[in-house]
Design a protein around this nucleic acid. Structure first.
Lengths: 217, 217
DNA sequence: GTTTGTGAAGGCTTTCACAGCC
DNA sequence: GGCTGTGAAAGCCTTCACAAAC
């Protein structure tokens, strides 16, 4: 299996394409479970309700992975996707906010997969500090963030605090040297260009559903 | 305070606009906390890193809420947003999957706000059925979904199960009469046109961050 | 003077459709 | 025959810029 070489300019590729690569990886994993060795973009689209032209275009940004007249080798495609997404090495995460959400994320299987590892869960509430989470980690004092991030070589910060502390935690994360932030707080937060921030606002999704329920039929 | 009247055609309005309305509502709530009574689109944009033309355009789909030369009345704008999003009535939710995520969502404050209420948490695992969640609800047998949805007049279903059962649960939800589904399983799911489905794949977000960390700087 | 609401412009994303290759 | 990779077209979304309103 040949390794992926082409230099990638992330600025030239849309967020939407990247998100879809992640979806394709999940689809390809499913094909492997099913024992399928080769797949065309059409077949992939049909099975998972995707668009075949879009699959081809998304993949073509990164190289020529397919064989005309045949399709894509499933195992090979999986390897390419993993390399493109940078999932061929471990990413260490620190969660700040040991409330319901933070604690759940801490041992959520979607998070603790092959590539992502939670190495700390922090809070500023003395009542919570020192308490064990169901996954075995002890809640630590968020004032020790810098030290913890450095020692455990964490790269990703997860914000699971109320909205009002989100920006402060974000600043602290940037200061500590984290390179990417996943923000679950219902707040717009700002960070330097060099630190990627992704906000996931669960309330927005519910309110969207509410809109369509109100104005549908 | 005048009430919102114009008939809305949801098909004419983009998802992105709706998601932003939800964000604007959060911003407006913040302005109210700060005691601000009037705001221009420019001021709103500056404060919360938004785009003023976009705010005006998004709002203009639903009526003429502003006053030229002045801006928007904050309290009034809030009321409009709430009516547009359909948040002026209670939305009852049922969560399926009493694992870490489902349990956390069950008493997650972002979910149990003014408009959204969790009225049931279901699972098919006999080990979990009958167990109390930290929020006080008892886990019920997911085979009773139809009955529970009807009795408690639930409208929204939340899928917090592993990917492999997601489609089955979705079908059951549609069957039970739920009108909207929030899917946290890492799987594409299909439902009839009349049922709105929103998938929130946490892994996609992490993998996106991983991409930018790998190819950044 | 200020700011909204909006047509037009610009930019971005998806989809089409086919040449080129197996 | 089939399928990929890709320019061109279509569609969608954002931003500009200004007439109309206060």
């Amino acid at each position: 299996m040949s390794s992926f070489k082409r230099k990638i300019d992330p600025a030239a590729i849309s967020d939407l394409t990247i998100a879809r690569l992640s979806v394709y990886l999940r689809c390809v994993d499913r094909l492997i479970e099913l024992g399928i060795e080769t797949v065309s973009s059409q077949e992939l689209a049909r099975r998972f309700s995707l668009n075949s032209a879009q699959i081809r275009k998304d993949l073509a940004y990164f190289g020529e992975f397919g064989v005309r007249g045949v399709g894509y080798q499933v195992q090979e495609l999986r390897q390419y996707l993993i390399e493109i997404l940078g999932l061929d090495r471990e990413r260490r995460m620190v969660i700040v906010g040991a409330g319901n959400l933070g604690t759940a994320l801490c041992h959520y299987s979607g998070f603790s997969g092959d590539s992502f590892l939670v190495v700390g869960i922090l809070d500023s509430d003395p009542q919570r500090i020192g308490q064990p989470t169901p996954s075995g980690l002890l809640v630590e004092d968020s004032s020790r963030m810098g030290e913890i991030v450095q020692q455990r070589r964490a790269e990703i910060g997860v914000i699971a605090t109320p909205a009002r502390s989100a920006q402060r935690i974000c600043d602290q994360m940037v200061e500590s040297g984290l390179r990417a932030i996943l923000n679950f707080a219902t707040a717009r937060i700002r960070a330097p260009e060099s630190v990627r921030v992704k906000t996931v606002d669960l309330k927005v999704h519910l309110e969207e559903l509410s809109f369509y329920m109100t104005h549908g039929d």
